[in-house]
């Protein structure tokens, strides 16, 4: 029983994610992308710059053999969490809808933002919960065509939206120009978000809302002690 944190060439938040989960009592192991993780009870695709982000962010990792393994686990309902580059990979792989394009500002945005829970996925994270989490990305602007956007709304696939501290949603609290202020998506057992919960998992890092998010996610894997 353990959560596998996948390591692609160019991943750089893998150990942070593993440490954050381990501190929550989750049994976790780092898995090189060529190695097997068929027995995993949860999979994390960490942040970073997989394959140098060549072609498009996450595009090459999304077509690597490891994603076949992720797809197989997701089909069985095993929880999958993509963080930042991991979210980009899941969208490129078609496991989550839409795509992540260059920020409206054209800038790499490295800042703390608020996000609001739009889909309750575990106890301790009801709809309306506001978390303060750091983002660090240049390609984080969620895009989709109109039919997909409607389907995402209708199917309740928006997990997190950027918001103000009081939970209100407006363009002013959208750091990258994402359609519908999307910060994270969920489709069945697959979840992805641009913010970095593992960078807000200890008070010394400036916040602990990331630990709350990861606790809620880990409770879905059944691996939390």
């Amino acid at each position: 029983m353990s959560v596998a944190v996948l390591v692609f060439p160019g991943s750089n938040c893998d150990r942070d994610a593993a440490r954050a989960l381990a501190r929550l009592g989750v049994k976790v192991r780092l898995v090189w992308h060529r190695d097997s993780f068929r027995d995993a009870d949860g999979v994390v695709l960490p942040g970073g710059f997989s394959y140098g982000d060549y072609l498009r962010s996450g595009a090459l990792a999304a077509h690597s053999p490891a994603i076949d393994g992720v797809r197989a686990l997701a089909a069985r309902g095993v929880p999958v969490l993509g963080i930042c580059n991991g979210f980009q990979i899941l969208c490129e792989a078609g496991l989550l809808p839409g795509a992540l394009g260059v920020n409206r500002s054209r800038q790499f945005r490295c800042s703390w933002e608020h996000v609001r829970v739009e889909q309750a996925l575990a106890e301790g994270a009801p709809v309306g919960t506001v978390w303060h989490l750091p983002i660090a990305h240049r390609e984080g602007r969620w895009l989709s065509d109109a039919p997909t956007r409607e389907r995402v709304r209708g199917d309740g696939e928006v997990w997190l939206r950027y918001c103000a501290a009081d939970g209100s949603v407006s363009d002013a609290s959208n750091p990258n120009g994402s359609l519908d202020h999307v910060a994270g998506l969920v489709r069945a057992s697959v979840m992805g978000l641009m913010p970095h919960p593992e960078r807000a998992a200890e008070a010394v890092l400036g916040g602990t809302d990331g630990a709350r998010l990861l606790t809620a996610w880990a409770s879905r894997t059944g691996v939390a002690s």
């Binding site: 072609l55 498009r56 969208c91 394009g101 895009l143």
Partner: peptide, 9 residues
């Protein structure tokens, strides 16, 4: 179609 271009964008 499968790899070089992302049909979403």
């Amino acid at each position: 179609e499968r790899v070089l271009a992302n049909p979403v964008m």
